[in-house]
Amino acid sequence: MIDLAQLGAAVERGDRDSARSLTQAAIDAGQAPQEILDAMVGAMGVVGRRFQAHEVFVPEMLIAARAMKESIALLEPLLVQAGIRPVARAIIGTVEGDLHDIGKNLVAMMWRSANIEVIDLGANVSPQRFLDAARQHEPHLVGLSALLTTTMPAIRRTVETLRQAGVAAPRIVIGGAPVTLQYAREIGADGYAPDAASAVDLARQLLGLQGSPS
């Protein structure tokens, strides 16, 4: 049996080689896929909280998420076989006219690390593309990002497009440097997240999921 705390620690420090080999060893030892998954989800929860506390920064979050992603790839067939599915589905993108994508990527990564399936639409995504994706994937969550004050109106247009089209009531979360809670309320979004780790807490809250794993 593998000590899954070691796997969690490898994910936390972004040690992709150790994370992969510990995951494979745990699989080979016949440990429950859900327990292996939970160890990694918990580790990314720790990374998220350390990010919020300014103890780790963007590079450390990225390497931790990469270690988890590569390990999950090994685990994926067993998760499917065991009928273990993501807890929710999200679509995410940077809004039309805005090519900045690192904030959106961090949120996508942290949502995935919380076992939320994420369909990443990329940057400079038009309201119509968000609508098409919402119809196709029927997400529980929609994430809209903007870095520029000039592209904030595109967040409003996207929210209006989704609401007016009456797609299956996803919860819409917005974020980005110029975005505020007040703006989220004004345009009818369901929530505002100031950073990627908060976006996980917000998603859990909006979807009525259990609190952050420890």
Binding site: G97, L99, D101, I102, G122, T150
Partner: peptide, 14 residues
């Protein structure tokens, strides 16, 4: 570089 009529040009990250 991607240009816009009325906002700053931006680099194509992809």
């Amino acid at each position: 570089v991607v240009w816009f009529d009325d906002q700053p040009p931006a680099l194509d990250e992809v």
